[in-house]
Simulated assay, not measured.
Amino acid sequence: MQFMKHLPSSCPACSEPLRIVRLKCAACETAVEGDFAFPALMQLPPAEQEFVLRFVLCSGSLKEMAREMGLSYPTVRNKLDDIIDHLKTLAHEPTR
């Protein structure tokens, strides 16, 4: 099994949201600095990000996801509903 490193979106010391302050091109070294928020999908925990990725790769078919994951359709639907609620919460949080 291959493990992917996940970009942290919260501070390991105080758990507050991290901000992006610098982006750099690996090819030409151009850098952009500012104060940027993480996109909502990147603010989800890794397991929820993985679920969203699987959902897209299954063309949005919860029936197909349930089959692949070995779960019931209602269980998969509930997981999606939880992620939707989480994204709605993130969308209403004030940016810092």
Rank of each mutant, 00 (worst) to 15 (best):
F3I: 13
F3T: 08
M4G: 04
H6T: 06
L7A: 11
L7E: 06
S9G: 02
S9E: 07
S15E: 09
S15N: 15
E16D: 07
E16V: 08
L18A: 07
R19N: 09
V21F: 12
L23I: 12
L23N: 04
C25V: 03
A26F: 07
A27L: 15
C28R: 12
E29Q: 12
T30A: 09
A31I: 06
V32R: 04
E33L: 05
G34W: 07
F36D: 02
A37P: 01
A37K: 04
F38V: 04
F38Y: 14
F38W: 07
M42W: 10
Q43I: 02
Q43G: 01
P46K: 06
P46V: 05
A47N: 09
A47C: 05
A47S: 11
E48S: 11
Q49N: 06
Q49K: 13
F51E: 03
F51M: 06
F51D: 02
F55L: 15
F55S: 01
V56P: 01
L57P: 00
S59R: 15
L62K: 07
L62Y: 06
L62V: 07
A66K: 04
A66W: 04
A66I: 01
A66P: 02
A66E: 03
G70V: 03
G70H: 11
G70W: 08
L71D: 08
Y73P: 02
T75V: 01
R77D: 08
K79A: 13
D81W: 03
D82V: 02
D82L: 08
I83C: 05
D85Y: 08
H86Q: 10
L87D: 02
L87T: 01
K88A: 08
K88W: 14
T89V: 09
T89G: 06
A91H: 08
H92Y: 09
E93T: 02
T95V: 10
T95Q: 13
T95D: 05
R96M: 10
R96C: 00
R96I: 04
